[in-house]
Design a protein around this nucleic acid. Structure first.
Lengths: 222, 222
DNA sequence: GCAAAACGTGAGTCGACCCTCACGTTTCGC
DNA sequence: GCGAAACGTGAGGGTCGACTCACGTTTTGC
């Protein structure tokens, strides 16, 4: 994902590394405020307190800026998500707690990471950015599937995929609402999303966690 | 919403009315395939089989094209939605049937109306189009609230608004998935969305329809 | 049939924006 | 301290795309 044609110098000094950070931060803000096409490279440079030439010193073109942001966000999302999930697994959390943690993790991430808004706003647009978005959804759907496999082993594999997709889409929708609302999601929306997913998933698996065989008292979930 | 500054001639002959139709159709397709910024006016004219001059004969600028599409879509959405809802009310449908009908209505609409994809893809982007999107969500949330008032009178007003918002957001998410998938939503996603909403709304109101007092056996729904 | 109005055309204008490059400045290695 | 490498700059080139306008064609009203 790093510049096949038109490679640029990689920053080696501290000064330049900080500048690259500032550029990416400015780009993230502007891409989420005005969309990829709406933001100009000039604006990005200005907001970063840098000349336009400096931007192109490290990024071959405008799209590379977006890709760098998407990569950063993906990495952070992966880390945050995994941290929450393994913590929940190790601490022996209940099903409900897993859901709550997942939603809180994304809420946190969205609240602290500007790149997230930029990515969620722009990834569905043209075929150009489809890759980044598809990677995100694949990533998360895969994680969700893994968790479903743990907590609802009786669920048929094919249906497991569908349920995982629904979970990811609902959470995506919540994040998108955040983008629409200018970056922050109201806490009552977050809370209600937990309710929504709990009720959806309740019939699928409500046993505490492994050991007990799934299906004891649980519905069949056609 | 129709051109305050830079007004253009309104088509009076049949020939020109058909041309305007073709232009809007082409614009709808291109806006949903390549986004508002991605589509050029030249392309739109070409796809409509019309010269660029003809486009500007009836629309003062590119944004006016989008606004016209949004208006058309809003009108059709309102009509389809109301038709389904009043039919359900008159025929004395159950709670579940109302949900199914609502989802089917949107699915239908999205499947037949190109403007829908254009609107859903582009409305959240810049502040320019926020109005159209806000109008849509207001419209639908209001409708949902009305139905909730009918079927779940015990639900506090404040919470009713939140639940209505969640319903609209979930359905929006489904429509957005359709846009991502190139225009069509898989039937299994549609089906699963019904399941999702049914389970979410089940504790809120599952009495058949008025007459019986709400809350008979139903949970309190904190 | 004819004038007038409506309609249709597309080469051309104008501004915006991505990106380059030749030249100046700072940091590094020794 | 000094040469070299890395870094920083911003005016300007080149392209692209929204929009215009002067002129030709079709339809309408009578």
């Amino acid at each position: 994902m790093s510049s096949p044609a038109g490679t640029r110098r990689a920053p080696t000094q501290d000064r330049s590394r900080q500048r690259v950070e500032r550029i990416l931060d400015a780009a993230g803000h502007l891409f989420s405020e005005k969309s990829f096409d709406g933001a100009t490279t000039e604006e990005i440079a200005e907001r970063a307190g840098v000349s336009i030439g400096s931007v192109y010193q490290y990024f071959p073109n405008k799209e590379a800026l977006f890709e760098a942001i998407a990569d950063q966000y993906l990495a952070r999302a992966r880390a945050v998500f995994e941290r929450h999930m393994t913590a929940a697994a190790v601490e022996g959390g209940t099903w409900d707690e897993i859901i709550d943690r997942a939603i809180d993790a994304f809420d946190d991430l969205q609240r602290t990471e500007v790149g997230g808004r930029a990515v969620w706003l722009n990834w569905a647009r043209s075929a150009r950015f489809f890759a980044a978005g598809a990677a995100l959804n694949e990533e998360f759907a895969g994680q969700a599937e893994g968790i479903l496999a743990m907590f609802a082993p009786a669920l048929p594999v094919k249906r497991r995929r569908l349920v995982a997709t629904m979970i990811v889409e609902v959470i995506s929708a919540m994040l998108f609402v955040g983008v629409r609302m200018g970056g922050q999601i109201g806490p009552e929306i977050v809370q209600e999303t937990k309710v929504l997913l709990r009720r959806y998933l309740e019939p699928i698996a409500n046993a505490p966690r492994r050991g007990r065989k799934a299906g004891s008292g649980g519905r069949s979930d056609a």
